[in-house]
Computed example of a mutant assay.
Amino acid sequence: MMHVVRYLTHPQVNIDPSIPVPRWGLSEVGRARTEAVTATGLFSGTAQVISSGEQKAIETAEIIAAKLGIDVEVREAMHENDRSATGFLVPDEFEEVANQFFGQPQVSVRGWERAVDAQVRVVGEVEHVLARDTPGDVLFVGHGGVGTLLYCHYAGLAIDRVHDQLAGGGCFFAFTSQERRVLHGWRRLEEL
């Protein structure tokens, strides 16, 4: 039986340069967007909610899982690409380095995890979960960078930022659990 696998990126966060990025939480806007989608029934067939270990992803996953009456499974290795070498970067500088990250996937840009390595890591985590062949749809909650790498993998596309989610996060794509066939590209939570 075919099940739907969705990968959802956390929506807007509280940006605080004094706190390590993995510990940032959802902003009021991000929380409201997540709570609003739980009323749509989009995730009603979901039997598993799997989250990155980063705070913003966990908060997103917990809101959805609570509505479904299921637990969140946290998988630490689903984290965003490791950018600890630079820490917080101001938006313009971040965008420049992110462009290099996607544009040179075989290179560690300014000490960041290489895109090819991040892709292998996140695909491995998803495949580990899917190998359990648990009945029902699966929702993975994570991040834009590794989510784009995951999308490129399942869509059979070269790593390229042109395939990145829409600005603001809170986007998802879907694929089938059996054939790993992409059903649709990135959509905003509001585009149900």
Rank of each mutant, 00 (worst) to 15 (best):
V13K: 09
V29L: 15
R33P: 00
R33K: 15
H10Q: 11
P20F: 07
I15T: 14
N14S: 10
E28Y: 03
R23W: 05
A32Y: 00
E28V: 09
W24V: 05
P11H: 10
V13S: 12
R31A: 12
T9E: 13
V13E: 06
D16Y: 05
V29N: 11
G25L: 02
V5P: 01
L8V: 04
E28N: 13
P17I: 04
G30T: 03
E28Q: 13
H10N: 14
R31D: 05
S18T: 15
S18P: 00
L8Y: 01
R33E: 15
R6M: 13
W24M: 08
P17V: 08
H10S: 11
V13N: 10
G25D: 09
L26C: 11
P20H: 12
Y7S: 06
Q12M: 11
T34F: 09
R33N: 12
R31I: 03
R31Q: 12
Y7I: 09
T34E: 04
V5Q: 00
A32S: 14
T9P: 10
Y7G: 10
R6D: 02
R31K: 15
H10I: 10
G30Y: 06
R23K: 15
P11K: 03
V29S: 13
G30M: 06
S27N: 04
Y7H: 10
P20I: 12
R6E: 05
E28H: 04
T34K: 05
G30H: 07
P11C: 10
W24D: 06
R33H: 11
V5T: 05
R33I: 00
G25K: 03
Y7V: 07
I19R: 14
L8F: 05
G30W: 05
L26W: 05
R23M: 13
A32F: 00
I19H: 04
P11F: 03
S18E: 14
I15N: 04
G30C: 06
V13H: 07
R6H: 07
P17E: 11
E28I: 01
H10W: 11
V21K: 12
R31G: 01
Q12Y: 02
S18A: 15
R31W: 09
Y7Q: 03
R33W: 02
Y7A: 05
P22Y: 06
S18H: 11
